[in-house]
Design a protein around this nucleic acid. Structure first.
Lengths: 238, 238, 238, 238
DNA sequence: CATGAATGAGAGTTCATTCAT
DNA sequence: GATGAATGAACTCTCATTCAT
């Protein structure tokens, strides 16, 4: 699990401020790993403390309880996710180039931190006033990037503006997360490029063999029929 | 929760065989409801026993432990899911009509039994040799229906055969499950029709505006016009 | 601590009903002793379980939590206390004989189970709607015996009816409990008779030297008799 | 809670001696309030430190541990209690006037600081060599005031000298504390005057109806009336 | 076969006390 | 002296599982 690596206190920091921050980082990282490896219920505070090289009580000095720890982990996850998405999008002008970047970014992140997403979904589902809570807002901020690109794409006529934006979003992220899940469950992890290419292709023109072809085929039929008539006439003429 | 209704032993069955079966059904139904309502860890064996009108110890007569009970619940879920999918598909000939049916069926099922899917995904993920275990096979059987329709669709040229089948599947189910999740998290539950329509539309032709097709069709018109001219000339020539 | 003695399961009982009851008794007795010895916070569920020869979890089978266990202990205490008071009072007709019995009974009980009283007072004090809760009602039932005797005594003119009943009660029980406390804190435990005698004496005639009043009243009678004689003589003389 | 008010260091003191003393006062006051509000176990060192505007560690600079802090609080409580009692008694010559003052003083103090008394009783009970410890001596000093008044009253024949002094004390303080407790548990706080009056009345003449004395006084009136008649007749005769 | 009382390991959380700064 | 971050032992309570009846 990449973000929660062994956290050696590389250089003993001078300021108290720094030490506190470093400790908090160590705790969140340890919690991250524990949650990813064991799930929320499976992760034990004692283990998290040990992994963070901190006493059990110290956890409660930094976070009110296990839930708050999860919130922190989820918060960091979304922070990183959103930031990276933002950065990648800024460098790209083309609608589909942006989407392709976001797709790859999301897929890779999902595969790496699948469990975190699971936690987000399963833990926050029964919350009352879910929409006011942190995770919902975090997710909004994240998908806002996607939304703005699609919106712009619709204005530019790159994307059909009659489609509900949220449905485009569901298709985009749904496909990616399902693909991630498939890969994880099967243990395969190499098909990222194919997933992205296929998704982009399907986004552009659906699964039907290029509508193009469909429209043409109608016209072409008419044409071919006429050509046959012509041919027949020619034959007759002859 | 529909499938786990109160399960009154309507008519006291004579056969021992029947009595046992009825009891097992009651237990699985109770477990189903408990898992759906509370999640795996949240569901307590005592509650399941009470709901099934059975002693706690009896649960262990029918199922080795809580996990086995989950396996049974998941098994039944997939059985019903697969059966209903099979039935719906048999009545339909058109590729996209079949897909639309499957989409609606899957979306409705997901919304109703979201928790079961969550459990499938999160519980079985760390299993070694996952592919040999029950749930994987169950899922394979279920998606095989989809796969055969898509395969046939490809042969019929309803669907672009150059797309990887598994990718089409990921897009299809991913979109539906993500949409289900969105609806559940937001508490909305009425947009099923819109989801299905949008998905089918995007499947058919992607998210790019039909304009594209329009442009192309212009080209085709040009071509057909030119062909007609050729035909006319041929006619005249004769 | 008398009520919670070692509780050897003297004869293995046949009925399940009996076994359950015996177990509950053992638990309450163990809790009683633990609370008496260590106070509420000081007593640990683990110790109570061990003393009752029962697993920790079993405690929670019989009582919802530590507080419920305390309630049970207090309930039993008051039950015994009230019953014994009732019995002793029934055999006595004289107001002061009854009071003397109640005084001795209460003093002895207080000395023996001082901590229980402490718990009643300190634990239940912050309860909202205290008056609706169990302990308050238990106490009411207990002091009702005293109250009815004093009420009757007032009707019989054994006790001054102009005194507020509750004040008589406060004086009676206050004195006894303070005396109990004194004895406990000092480790003396033999002065019961003196306490009772003094209390009864003070109840009857206050702390003012009763002799005085008695002597005077005799004197006055003598005087009045002598005066009447004088008067008679005077009358006759005339 | 009156004695632990906000303790603003009104004027920054010059001397180190003064500063230390002021700090100690603030700590004891904060501890007092915490103990009164939450009980001994319920009061947390962190809260006390915060209330005293002092770091947690500082508490341990002034007091060895939580128990020592309690000792200090109890010490101060008795100091104030004793001082006020002393003052009030000095101004009064009459035995019963003194007792009435002490009664009111004690009752009011008890109601205000009930928890402190509870703590004294319950915390120090298991101490070995209790009689050597601080609280016992503090209590002795306090009740010595009462004792000396009663002793003097006995010499003056205001009080029956045959009563054991300690029993008079138990009755006096017992009644008051029980009355205080009653008021606290019921939430009533206004009957102080009635309590005092009733207590003084019962002290003077017990609970038996003054009837005796009353009857006598009636007799005397009759007699004196007859004597007057006789006298009148004599006068006439003469 | 069925029961359900009993188990006990293990969870999250608290808080008096310490000690490096 | 003063600080307050850190500690970790100890607490209450839960619940999957077992087994005597």
């Amino acid at each position: 699990m990449s973000p929660g690596e062994a956290q050696a206190p590389e250089n003993t920091p001078k300021t108290r401020r720094e030490r506190v921050e470093q400790r908090e980082n160590a705790i969140v990282a340890a919690a991250h790993d524990a949650f990813v490896d064991m799930g929320f219920e499976g992760a034990r505070m004692a283990d998290i403390a040990r992994a963070a090289k901190v006493a059990e009580g110290t956890l409660y000095l930094y976070f009110k309880n296990k839930n708050a720890l999860l919130d922190a982990v989820v918060g960091r996850f979304y922070e990183r996710l959103t930031e990276a998405a933002q950065d990648g999008v800024q460098d790209r002008a083309d609608t589909f180039a942006c989407l392709e970047f976001l797709a790859r970014h999301h897929l890779v992140s999902c595969i790496r931190e699948w469990r975190i997403l699971e936690l987000v979904v399963s833990r926050y589902r029964n919350l009352q006033h879910y929409q006011d809570r942190g995770p919902y807002q975090l997710n909004r901020r994240y998908v806002a990037i996607f939304d703005s690109i699609v919106s712009l794409g619709m204005k530019r006529r790159d994307i059909d503006p009659s489609l509900p934006l949220w449905m485009v979003r569901d298709l985009f992220y749904g496909t990616l997360e399902y693909a991630a899940r498939t890969q994880i469950l099967r243990g395969e992890q190499a098909n990222i490029a194919i997933v992205i290419d296929s998704l982009m292709s399907m986004l552009r023109s659906g699964i039907a063999p290029g509508d193009q072809a469909a429209v043409e085929s109608v016209d072409l039929e008419q044409i071919s029929r006429r050509l046959e008539q012509v041919a027949a006439r020619l034959e007759n003429t002859t």
